[in-house]
């Protein structure tokens, strides 16, 4: 399992997350709600990926000023997610432990009743190598937001199936492609690939040519699938 080599040995300047200690990654978001209009803080939290020599490889996002952002910072106080926007599309950066309560709260209090999508992005150079992205939509507000959490290798975010049943397959697909397991998910199995498949194809270390050679040889009776 990919959980075994825990990348805790890589001390990062902003946070040293350990999957068990829920308090550790509090450090970055604490500063955020106080100074909501401080996007560089968020940008700095993302180490520029492959040491690109030119232009800083960060997203030029700005703070999102809206009723929802204010309401959230009032309701959550110090734990409020960062509210940012890029190209007119707002997104929240939340703490991995608080994602399901946040989705629940957005559904109950702000009418975000439709979970559009769950997906992930792999950033192998980062201390917390995965972004898990939740896209939510509210029918009554006609508004779409994204929630992003940054998680370490082996961290198991809580499943959102209790709030939105549609998260079931979407989370299974994230597990299938990235190996991110969701805690308390009723059926955490592979969905698109065969159950015996060994790699997680959308991780960046797996090139497009790399495949589960053993599985192909055993099950398909051919030398190589390439």
């Amino acid at each position: 399992m990919p959980d075994d080599p825990k990348p805790e040995g890589t001390p990062s300047p902003e946070s040293a997350p350990s999957p068990e200690a829920a308090q550790a990654p509090v450090t970055p978001p604490v500063a955020a709600p106080v100074a909501a209009a401080k996007p560089p803080a968020a940008a700095a939290a993302k180490p520029p990926a492959p040491a690109a020599p030119k232009a800083p490889a960060v997203m030029a996002s700005t703070a999102w000023e809206s009723d929802l952002a204010e309401a959230l910072s009032a309701e959550f106080g110090g734990d409020a997610p960062e509210c940012l926007t890029y190209l007119g599309q707002p997104f929240l950066v939340a703490k991995p432990e608080s994602i399901v309560p946040l989705i629940q709260h957005l559904q109950d209090a702000h009418d975000f009743d439709y979970l559009v999508d769950i997906t992930a992005v792999h950033w192998p150079e980062r201390a917390e190598p995965f972004d898990v992205i939740y896209v939510l939509y509210s029918f009554s507000r006609n508004e779409r937001i994204r929630i992003k959490i940054r998680i370490a290798e082996g961290f198991k975010p809580l499943t959102a199936t209790m709030v939105h049943p549609s998260a079931d397959w979407l989370e299974r697909e994230v597990y299938d492609m990235f190996g991110i397991e969701f805690d308390e998910h009723p059926n955490m199995r592979r969905i698109l690939l065969p159950d015996e498949w060994e790699t997680f194809p959308l991780r960046k270390e797996n090139s497009i040519l790399k495949m589960d050679q053993r599985w192909v040889q055993e099950n398909l009776g051919i030398e190589s699938g390439q």
Partner: peptide
């Protein structure tokens, strides 16, 4: 560098594309 989620009404429902660019 950035990301965007854009969705359209495909015949079957909401078809979304979430693209992350690293420049």
């Amino acid at each position: 560098v950035g990301e965007a989620y854009v969705s359209i009404e495909a015949p079957k429902g909401e078809l979304g594309y979430y693209i992350v660019s690293d420049g």
